[in-house]
Write a protein that binds this DNA or RNA. Structure first.
Length: 462
RNA sequence: GGCCGAGUGGCAGAAUGGCUAUGCAGCGGAUUGCAAAUCCGUGUACAUCGGUUCGAUUCCGGUCUCGGCCUCCA
């Protein structure tokens, strides 16, 4: 099976050939930890988690690095605004981040480096750039000099003339060239900072990913991913730094970028508050807002990763229903072999075509429940397909009846006793009483199903 | 203004130069005390105008519309 991936650098789908067949290396830009992640931040994490799982199916060893940006002006501003220490803010945010991404069914990355643990690596790289005359000092800043790299702009498909012409931001007077960007900037006494050959200061944004990817992978590696908004300037500048610091290397072989999210048909915007945080969608105790992480995940995978996706409550409901169906069809089935079938692999190997994968799995599901399929084999395929997507990770009972938050629901005992009362009423053919109990439970988010053998099962609606 | 991407049936969303996407919703039926779940059957599409072609939703060009990026936002 050959994996094809859309490479932003070449604007085309290309066959994936790893630099080292024995060890595939993937780097993805992680969060800046000044606030809880929103559903837009969750998309690249889910998408590249699927890529990570797929690569693990195909190659003996995969290293997945996803960084945490814990030094940034937004962090400093937020902490100052709250009168809180920077470490308190970042530690708390990272804790919530880990809860969120786990609830969304993501594997842990192999390495999760933090920017603040790699200041020395950044300083060394900046030093090389200065000594090779790709960077210069000006008013306590160190700046990368863009004209030193002839084909700067190759990744984002723009030239310097366009950049300068379209610049919306005021250009700092100490820049030799308007396109030059910061590698190191000075910190005041009160601001967080580190000693460096250029005085006490802190790194610019782009240098951290360059320094950390180089540290863990060396100057060349396979895949670098992130949201499409990172193409410019972040990834363009990473590329520039790395190619200048390591002139014999081409840095990243495959650049992958996921599309943006909209929210309920509107642009997601922090200023209008038009976005959901992951924490919010996962509920934290409010039943109406409570959604399973897997519902969010499935919804995200229902649209191809490079297209824009409208995040809606209706979409979550659809995803939940689809998962119900899959869980129902599988029951307590656990297969011995969990390799996805060829059809599923083919769809995923076509630039992670998850919508097509889902269609294949729906077809499997229909064939199983219509009794037209050698059930255990089809169930195995369904299970394995779900596994490579990071879905169906719950036990059946936990999915249908489990509580997501301890204080959110009544105990299951109350439900069982009401079901028993209803059964008695039905046996007396007192259907009004029976229906009233069913409605009571429905209002508590519990749906009943009477089975042909006279038993009644129940499940939660969220 | 520059660059990039997209426009598919009621909704979501794939593939494809000629052949059913799929899911949800709808409609008809089976089943059920009623439901729920499940099954069977069923309708609706390819923004627009040209071009290439035996044939285009699919390729090319124009138009319109929408979205994204244009120095620190995934």
């Amino acid at each position: 099976m050959i994996l094809h991936l859309y490479n932003t650098l070449h604007r085309a789908k290309m066959e994936f050939v790893p630099l080292d067949e024995e060890h595939v290396r993937v780097y993805v830009c992680g969060p800046t930890v000044y606030d809880d992640i929103h559903v837009g931040n969750a998309r690249p994490i889910i998408v590249f988690d699927v890529l990570y799982r797929l690569l693990q199916e195909m190659y003996p060893r995969v290293t997945y690095v996803r960084n945490i940006t814990d030094v940034d002006d937004k962090i400093m501003d937020r902490a100052a605004g709250r009168g809180e220490g920077i470490n308190d803010l970042t530690e708390r945010t990272i804790l919530q981040f880990h809860k969120d991404v786990e609830a969304l069914g993501n594997l842990k990355p192999s390495i999760e480096p933090r920017a603040t643990d790699h200041i020395d690596d950044m300083i060394r790289m900046i030093d090389v750039l200065i000594s090779q005359r790709f960077a210069y000092m000006a008013e306590k800043h160190v700046l990368f000099h863009v004209p030193t790299l002839a084909d700067y702009g190759r990744l984002s498909g723009r030239n310097r003339g366009e950049l300068v012409a379209g610049a919306r931001v005021e250009i700092a007077p100490y820049k030799k060239d308007p396109a030059d960007f910061v590698l190191w900037k000075p910190s005041t006494e009160k601001q967080v900072g580190w000693e460096s050959p250029w005085g006490r200061g802190r790194p610019g944004w782009h240098i951290e990913c360059s320094a950390m990817s180089t540290k863990y992978f060396g100057p060349d590696f396979d895949i670098h991913g992130g949201g499409e908004d990172l193409i410019f300037p972040h990834h363009e500048n990473e590329l520039a730094q790395c190619r200048c610091a390591h002139p014999d290397s081409s840095f990243v072989q495959y650049w992958l970028h996921n599309g943006y999210l909209q929210s309920e048909g509107q642009k997601m915007s922090k200023s209008t508050g038009n976005f959901y945080t992951v924490k919010e969608i996962l509920g934290e105790g409010e039943r109406e807002k409570m959604w399973r992480g897997e519902s969010i995940r499935l919804m995200m995978l229902g649209t191809h990763y490079r297209r824009s996706l409208d995040f809606t409550k209706k979409g979550l409901e659809d995803a939940k229903r689809k998962l119900d169906r899959w869980y129902r069809v599988l029951g307590d089935f656990k297969p011995e072999v969990v390799s996805p079938n060829e059809e599923v692999m083919e769809a995923l190997c076509d630039d992670l075509n998850t919508p097509r994968t889902l269609a294949i799995m729906d077809a499997l599901c229909s064939r199983i429940s219509a009794g037209r399929e050698e059930a255990s084999e089809a169930r195995g395929s369904l299970y394995a397909g779900a596994r490579v997507l990071g879905l169906l990770q719950y036990d059946n009972e936990a999915w249908f009846q489990g509580v997501m938050s301890t204080d959110a629901y009544e105990e299951g005992d109350g439900i069982e006793s009401l079901i028993a009362q209803r059964l008695a009423a039905r046996q007396e053919r007192n259907f009004d009483a029976a229906d009233s109990i069913r409605n009571t439970l429905l209002h508590r988010g519990v749906v009943l199903e009477d089975k042909p053998d006279g038993t009644t099962i129940w499940r939660r609606t969220t």
